[in-house]
Amino acid sequence: KRYRAVYDYSAADEDEVSFQDGDTIVNVQQIDDGWMYGTVERTGDTGMLPANYVEAI
């Protein structure tokens, strides 16, 4: 699945990823209600991200 960031996010922990509004997130997997795991296409960084900061595309 592919998602697009709708807000900027700065990683708060080493297992999270930072991204900017408009970034595409690929290979996304749902972890639980609030978190997903995926790769930021622009940077190649992979990690956890907050589900409410992205939307499906």
Rank of each mutant, 00 (worst) to 15 (best):
I31E: 06
Q20R: 14
G44P: 01
W35L: 05
K1R: 12
D32S: 15
Y53W: 07
V54N: 01
L49S: 00
D33G: 12
V40R: 00
A51I: 11
M48R: 15
E14W: 11
A12I: 12
V6S: 06
I57D: 08
W35C: 05
I57R: 05
Y53K: 10
D15E: 11
V6Y: 07
G44T: 04
V40I: 08
P50E: 01
N27G: 09
N52H: 13
Q20H: 12
T39N: 03
Y7P: 00
I31C: 14
P50D: 04
V17W: 01
V54M: 07
E41M: 09
A12G: 10
G38C: 03
V40T: 01
A11R: 07
Y37H: 11
P50W: 04
V40W: 00
D32K: 14
K1D: 11
S18Q: 03
N27P: 02
P50C: 09
G44D: 05
D45Q: 14
T46I: 08
E16S: 08
S18E: 03
Q29F: 13
A51N: 06
G38E: 03
G44K: 06
F19E: 00
Y3A: 05
D32M: 13
D32G: 13
V26L: 11
R2S: 09
D23M: 03
D23N: 02
Y37K: 09
D21M: 15
A51W: 05
D15V: 10
A51E: 07
P50K: 09
A5M: 00
D33P: 10
V6T: 09
D21E: 15
E14I: 12
I57L: 11
G38K: 00
E41G: 04
G44S: 06
E55K: 10
G34A: 13
Y3T: 04
F19C: 03
E16M: 08
Y7K: 15
G22P: 01
R4I: 11
G44F: 04
N52Q: 13
V26F: 09
E16A: 07
V54Y: 02
D13R: 15
D8G: 11
S10I: 14
M36P: 00
Y37D: 04
V6W: 06
Q29E: 11
F19L: 06
T24N: 08
I57N: 05
I31M: 12
W35V: 04
T43Y: 01
T43P: 02
M36L: 14
T46N: 06
T43L: 01
Q20A: 09
R42H: 06
M36N: 04
L49A: 04
R2A: 08
Y53P: 02
G47P: 01
D33F: 10
V26G: 06
D21Y: 15
Y53M: 11
